[in-house]
Write a protein that binds this DNA or RNA. Structure first.
Lengths: 153, 153
DNA sequence: TCAAAATCATTCGTATGCAAATGATATCAG
DNA sequence: CTGATATCATTTGCATACGAATGATTTTGA
């Protein structure tokens, strides 16, 4: 073994691999992949709606009519994003919009009967998607994971 | 208390809240929010590069020259997405592309000296971003979380 | 060998996602 | 009361993200 080899080993030992950056170990990268997997599972069960569109319908089903901005806050979308989502749901007749009588800035959004029928039909599928997303974990692991994930979100 | 009230309570008790779908408890929704938070933290530390762009540079720094398609596989991007990312990195002089001598289908991608300088400068910031992303968790919780998250990704 | 299948890259279309700028309206403070 | 500030919605621009279609090239298999 040469002196150079000894020096190299010493340096590596001192560094303890700290100089080696592995993308696949970074929480951001894994988070992105886990999210991708979930979206893919979602699409395999609910082909005609995206997760954000589903989120909008589910929240409207939960709380009833609300303003576009407030809906965005509740489903974690900024104003520009939620507008696009609502526009597409409106074009498909799943939601309807109206002006707020008092505050003329606000745009009220609500489910149409078709939208209500759709979300009622889809919620059971969404439960399946949640199950499949968590399928690699045991029940106990899934509970732990959800608790910790919620802390990060 | 009326008979109607009793009936309502009975129904609710039987349902055990199972008919009530809460978006904010679904793993997909929380995953999306956690990812959003990470991207936001990333942007606050590294303003001139997106997480996918950083991933491309970090992987090229790790493994050296590779084909665009292979790079996409390694950083979990489909062919259409990785093309856009590489195009933008190329336009900024951080990567350079060349044709594979033998297999004329392949487009080889590699860091430029500027790209290498950039990723070496940014990796310490990325470590900080990872720390801040996991900051709401204790060290033990973070280890558990990463282990379970990896199972889902 | 040579036609079929697979791989690599590109392009198009659609859908988030967010920053920044803008306009309309509402609220607040002096 | 009114000017400053805040809120709501829209628009623009840029950057992922992915399905589907296409073309070029390579590999496979009968």
């Amino acid at each position: 073994m040469s002196g150079e080899d000894n020096l190299l080993r010493l340096v590596e030992a001192e560094d303890g691999d700290e100089n080696n950056y592995h993308l696949q170990d970074q929480v951001g990268f894994i988070l992105r992949k886990a999210h991708q997997r979930h979206v893919s599972l979602f699409a395999s069960h609910i082909a005609d709606l995206t997760p954000p569109q589903f989120a909008a319908l589910a929240k409207l089903y939960d709380i009833g009519e609300t303003s576009q901005n407030q809906l965005g806050t509740l489903i974690a979308m900024d104003a520009a994003t939620v507008k696009g989502v609502i526009d597409r749901l409106k074009a498909r007749g799943l939601v309807e919009v109206s002006k707020h009588e008092v505050d003329k800035r606000r745009l009220l959004v609500n489910l149409t009967p078709e939208g209500r029928e759709a979300i009622e039909r889809l919620i059971p599928l969404a439960r399946t998607i949640t199950e499949e997303t968590l399928a690699p974990l045991t029940a106990k692991e899934a509970a732990t994971f959800l608790r910790l994930l919620a802390k990060l979100a």
